[in-house]
Design a protein around this nucleic acid. Structure first.
Lengths: 387, 387
DNA sequence: CAACTTTGTTTAGTCAATAGACAAACTAAG
DNA sequence: CTTAGTTTGTCTATTGACTAAACAAAGTTG
């Protein structure tokens, strides 16, 4: 079979999705207004809305003001029809949220992680998730899914192929959680979920082509092209941290030479700071910069310049509408930004630069966890559309 | 209006497209077989096929062999239902083809271009296209479109924003041709159409994620992601030739430093050859390499290594199924390939390398012109689907 | 030659969307 | 307080695309 064949059920699903989307974007609004904005016939809208009401996804919330005729009956999406769990699995911490279907946080938790061994992590992770789920109020759909962001390479089956900083190889994370909770589990890379978080709930709201640059120990990147996470042939891509910016530079553990993250990550900063006798500690360095330490400020500017080198490459390659800097090093915005911005403006192609906004993450250390929960929510809506 | 709303006409268009696709891929085949492979009901297939026959897109070509019952009536696509023109507009040449709707070449022409001034080019281009069109046999749809590949940046309206090697700025190419010929005109970058040509008619047939690297005077790239040309926010992207591979390398006219094309293009080759006293001529250098000139061979290997550096970056970024090297320098395959392949294998991430094939263009100097004609053919089929 | 197969058409029925009529509920002008 | 006009949402009849099932035509096989 080449493509999915079309029948009337398909049309109904499509139009139902359109109506639901209209409500999500414009609530509260009336059937008449939905008919206007979507182009669907009033009768069709009435019928589809009734189905949504029967399915407990939409409800009437009284009447609005008349503009010279019968008052409209206003509709809204029932955000509390279900709940989702988002988990940010870090190297040494576990962060989680429980949200409703609109992404409003109902509960959140955070604990340190002492042993990165997979079995030990599972022992902590399962009750952690369980406790979040227990906080979900009663609802028609219950907990609709669990999204997890991990610092490593994830394949289509939700197995973590390789997470160097945790020492993981081929860990079947989704399978393990699937079995424990019997709800859909979505796993993705930390940078990918960070991108999703900022695109849905952060500074990148509504932008269709953007690149999220997660600057932590290394550099990870999440690509959103045409409003969707881009995955390559094998289901993972966007290892822009290992883009070589110095063909004959220092060797990287990845096998390449002169990788971007060797010059522009937290690790690069800490190493160079250590060479000058500073402590290997981001907080201490930021405090020093704050206190006016010119040497640290110059060092941060230098890192900013290197960030700019890689970002100019990104802008030239993807011609995105926005590049968003996130994760730990985004806290150094004040000292990184001027040099970074100058470098990008010097180096990127004018045509591409025109539409490319350089932004810093708005959700701070919550980009990833919010993206993780969005993964679960989006999967729920996808299921609605296709069944 | 958020999305296109669904009705019965949409279903019919979708299913007609599915049936047509099945015929294109599997011809000659019977209605019964179409029903089997698509999952559509026999009656539906019969009805849709009849419409296609009425529209002169499909015809019956007699009966096939029986497998124990009534003989099937075999159907085929009428490739001669229409014709398309493809133009490769080079800096100093004009290449054109006229093909049927299957891309079979019916006529081709090539002439040198002496003056790159836009007005002068138009004076030559219009009769050039006219002569190709005049060679089209009578057919139900006539000439369905003109596709053009140009060595520069093209915007959504088919204007050439910038073509440095031709000295063009803001040339409204599509508008000019539209007015002259009154058929749909599609303009795109030379590397983009080259990618399309190889993906449809060359070595990349059927590959859904691939990167075409056009190595000529400079380096251009065409990205095919999810079977479609990727364009960024402004409708152009993929300036991978200006990916910096040496953060503090030589300055490039684009404003950046250490751009890939400064080290791995024909220009780079010719300049380095000239420094060693060789003529600035690719043919002469290839002949020398052929004759066993070790110095030239080493130079080519060095260029190959730099090609590998950039390709490793590409593989890490896009995780494509294939990287295809095309345009003039692909003729040096014999001397480039070993060093290139070795470098990519050393530098690219193992996970990504697993599915990434390194290939050389199959259509030689015809990649672009075949991609240009495909642009026009694909647009014709798209119009069929949406109307 | 009889029995079975395969192909493609015809028939009757289902389902989703639509246009248009309509009832309900409201505003506003006289 | 009427009356006219407007807006909202439902109801009804119709259209059109797909499907299952029956069927006719044209084969093969023992």
């Amino acid at each position: 079979m080449t493509t999915k064949t079309g029948d009337q059920a398909l049309i109904k699903r499509m139009n139902t999705a359109i109506v639901l989307e209209a409500i999500l974007l414009g609530e509260p609004l009336s059937r008449a207004r939905i008919s206007d904005t979507t182009g669907l016939n009033k009768a069709t809208v009435s019928s589809l809305v009734q189905d949504l009401i029967d399915n407990r996804l939409v409800r009437e919330i009284g009447t609005g003001v008349s503009s010279g005729g019968r008052k409209p009956v206003l509709l809204e999406f029932i955000a509390e029809a279900g709940y989702a769990v988002g988990i940010d699995l870090g190297v040494n911490y576990l962060r989680g949220v429980l949200t409703d279907l609109r992404g409003r946080v109902v509960a959140q938790r955070e604990i340190p992680l002492t042993d990165p061994d997979p079995e030990e992590v599972f022992k902590v992770l399962r009750p952690f998730i369980r406790q979040l789920m227990d906080e979900a109020p009663a609802s028609p759909f219950g907990v609709v899914g669990i999204g997890v962001g991990v610092p490593g390479l994830v394949d289509r089956n939700g197995s973590v192929l390789f997470a160097p900083n945790m020492g993981w190889r081929d860990v079947p994370l989704r399978e393990a959680l699937d079995r424990a909770f019997h709800v859909p589990v979505l796993i993705d890379n930390e940078a990918n979920v960070g991108a999703l978080g900022e695109q849905k709930y952060g500074i990148g709201r509504g932008i269709s082509n953007m690149v999220y640059v997660s600057v932590g120990i290394g550099i990870g990147t999440g690509l959103i092209l045409h409003r969707e996470l881009y995955k390559g042939e094998s289901g993972f891509s966007g290892e822009l941290g290992h883009l070589s910016v110095n063909a004959h530079g220092k060797p990287c553990r990845c096998g390449n030479r002169g990788c971007w993250e060797l010059y522009a990550s937290e690790q690069a900063l800490l190493e160079r700071a250590a060479e000058s006798g500073y402590p290997r500690d981001l907080n201490a360095l930021l405090a020093a910069a704050q206190d006016g330490d010119a040497q640290v400020q110059a060092l941060l500017a230098d890192i900013g310049e290197y960030l700019g080198v890689g970002i100019a490459n990104i802008v030239n390659v993807f011609n995105p509408n926005a590049v968003i800097i996130g994760n730990r090093l985004s806290r150094a915005q004040a000292w990184l930004e001027p040099a970074m911005r100058r470098t990008v403006e010097e180096r990127a192609l004018g045509f591409h630069l025109r539409n490319a906004h350089l932004l810093f993450a708005e959700l701070g250390d919550r980009s990833a966890v919010m993206g993780a929960v969005e993964l679960a929510i989006a999967a729920f809506f996808d299921r609605l559309k296709s069944a």
